[in-house]
């Protein structure tokens, strides 16, 4: 279970997250929608502590991320421990961010700290349908294939949770489907996922909960049928009327 309580984050004087409370159940899929600049990426990045929060806290399976609680004080964890926590949280970037000097299988195996890393990496690549491409370098793969390698890389550490930041926005339209298919399979297999996306069709079909974020606040949340078909808030309605044309 993932729990965000009163999460606040500013860049300089610009308050990007204005107190976020969110609970995500184990094995559930949460889709975050919201206009550009509303703080979606920042929210995801606070969950694996790529951004430090200014106030509030994040817990994953009860474990406080990035801090140690001592009485009423939150002590920042040393980087080594934060890195260890991050290994339990997969992150898939909009721009894939594969390591260009490593092959697909090396990319996936890089963070695995086990003697059978390569076998494990190949298993993950097979799972995302890339059995044939294990020895290809990222440059030799299409965007959709690169993003699937990135997903395999995020899965290879058996994460408790996988975060997706607009995983299909950098893809040509005909490649979006293959990535969404992989994500659909993951959801079906019970992977806990938080997904920022503009793919409303995917959200409607796969999400358990849709969260609508606007200007650093959660404006409304609920099951897809509720949020997408009968939004309560004007902001949500305005946003949906733009993306649903």
């Amino acid at each position: 279970m993932i729990e965000l309580r009163g999460v606040q984050k500013s860049f300089g004087s610009h308050e990007v997250l204005k107190g976020i409370d969110l609970t995500v159940g184990k094995g559930s899929v949460t889709v975050i929608l919201g206009p550009s600049g509303s703080g979606k990426s920042t929210l995801l990045r606070t969950i694996n502590h790529l951004e430090k929060v200014d106030r509030g806290h994040v817990r994953v399976d009860g474990e406080l991320i990035g801090y140690r609680l001592d009485g009423t004080k939150l002590h920042e964890l040393p980087e080594r421990l934060v890195l260890r926590q991050r290994a339990g949280i997969g992150f898939v970037f909009q721009t894939f961010n594969l390591f260009p000097h490593l092959t697909a299988v090396e990319n996936v195996a890089e963070a695995i700290r086990r003697p059978d890393a390569r076998e494990r990496a190949i298993t993950e690549l097979v799972r995302v349908g890339l059995a044939e491409k294990t020895d290809a370098y990222p440059r030799q793969l299409s965007g959709g294939q690169q993003q699937r390698v990135a997903i395999a890389r995020a899965l290879a550490l058996d994460p408790k949770l996988v975060l997706f930041d607009e995983p299909t926005s950098a893809l040509d339209p005909e490649l979006v489907g293959e990535v969404l298919d992989v994500m659909r399979d993951l959801a079906r297999a019970g992977t806990t996922m938080i997904v920022v996306t503009h793919e409303i069709g995917f959200a409607r079909e796969v999400a358990d909960t849709i969260v609508f974020l606007d200007d650093g606040r959660i404006v409304e949340q609920g099951p897809p049928a509720e949020v997408l078909d009968s939004p309560k808030h004007d902001r949500t309605r305005a946003f949906l009327s733009k993306v649903l044309v």
Partner: peptide, 21 residues
Amino acid sequence: QRQLEAAAALGIPRLRQFRRI
């Protein structure tokens, strides 16, 4: 910079990030 961010997101230790990535 995104290369190091990806490495950090994977929890790769600092020295290994430097050496391998």
